[in-house]
Design a protein around this nucleic acid. Structure first.
Lengths: 227, 227
DNA sequence: CAACGATTTTCGGTATACCGATTTTGGTTA
DNA sequence: TAACCAAAATCGGTATACCGAAAATCGTTG
């Protein structure tokens, strides 16, 4: 566990806190306070903040405290749009380059999700889901693509998490994943693209709805406070 | 000029040096030496190195000096593959969202390149070329997409620069750019995708050839040294 | 002479100190 | 009471100091 650099560990810790909502969007991240809290010095903490900034989870402001990013609906929508293109390309390339073992592993993940359908808690299910998408990116055998994909996933992690724990349409998720795996097994690029398109188009709607609902609630408590 | 943070300025400086070959691929970047050389302390220099690392221009090694990245042919090819998808999406979105002024500006760039065809030096022409591609990404009106595009451009900057200064097929570049602009003016997404596909497919070949040639030369001087 | 090993040097990672800009505050005044 | 201004606290940006690990050097040995 000591093999990783301290700044990376801190970044992981902060990322968890942001994604899980322990650090609310808009909250300021003061270097001294957080460093003291985590028992480290400002230097690696500062580096961790920069890492999260490149991931889009933190917003840097000149001569001001960094704050947990408050993505606009527009930005989230933009991210999904890019993710869609990236993942479609991943799927397409995976058709040509993925090993049978990699595709089998994907099928295994889907089978697993299906089996634990209504027994597993939302967080576990969500992480399995993310693992599935990451595995598709990896199966493209294009490191650059996988990296971009990872960045987008991190940026959308919180929004997707909020959408996922409502688990309104787990059934549809499993159904979509099944379609994607089938297309990959057939190694049919066009089919894979369609399946991913369908999946992520649904996702975009879910995410935007969830975020809009969250913003509405935040708006309410804000006006209530001023009353 | 003081408005930018010191680390960003240093990153710009180092980026120029790397792209122009003043810092050769594989060269180690020692924090103390370079900091002293630029008259700054290690802290902002270190931060600059991290910035360049996220751009893929520098490679971080655990407990070792960072080195100027030595991208493999595979990695460059991967990058171009992603860039192709990103730029096709940019063009497609630009068809729907770009303002007439933005498209006119693109046409202006192409006209400019065409006019200065054989009077301008390679570096100027290259920077104009890069500006053209950046403008397409901007015209997508998708901030996330433009950002990813920018990162890929930075990563490929040196390789494209080496390919461009050979200016073997400036004519073809202008021709391709003209086709792209025409398709954008017609706001025909399929046509734009095709035009960009053609342009970047050519680019990939040029880049790979150039890098392979460079590597061959490096190989030669390496074996000569050991003789 | 070559292979090896201990010592010294170098370097990245981390902590701490200092500075200037910004924000907050507390008191003063209209 | 509210607007304002100056003193003080806060915080990010930068410089410097310290530490342990890796690497280079050099003497030793087979």
């Amino acid at each position: 566990m000591k093999e990783e650099i301290l700044a990376a560990q801190i970044a992981n810790q902060l990322r968890r806190n942001i994604v899980l909502g322990k650090l609310q969007p808009g909250a300021s991240i003061k270097e001294r306070d957080n460093a003291a809290e985590l028992g480290v010095s400002r230097t690696p903490l500062r580096e961790a903040i920069r890492i999260l900034a490149t991931e889009g989870l933190v917003e840097l402001r000149p001569a001001r405290s960094p704050i947990v990013a408050v993505p606009t609906i527009q930005m989230i929508s933009d991210d999904v749009e890019v993710l869609l293109a990236v993942e479609k390309l991943s799927g397409e390339l995976a058709c040509a380059r993925a090993t049978d073992a990699e595709i089998a592993a994907l099928a295994e993940i889907v089978a697993d999700m299906d089996a634990r359908f209504d027994t597993t808690d939302a967080l576990d299910m969500f992480e399995t889901d993310m693992g599935f998408h990451r595995a598709i990116a990896a199966a493209s055998h294009n490191a650059s693509l996988a990296e971009v994909h990872g960045t987008l996933l991190a940026r959308l992690w919180r929004a997707r998490y909020l959408a996922a724990i409502q688990k309104r349409n787990r059934a549809r998720v499993v159904e979509h994943h099944t379609a994607i795996v089938s297309a990959l097994q057939a190694r049919d690029p066009a089919l894979v693209r369609d399946a991913i398109q369908t999946h992520l188009a649904t996702l975009r709607v879910d995410i935007v709805n969830t975020i809009e609902a969250e913003r509405a609630v935040a708006q309410d408590s804000e006006s209530a406070k001023s009353a």
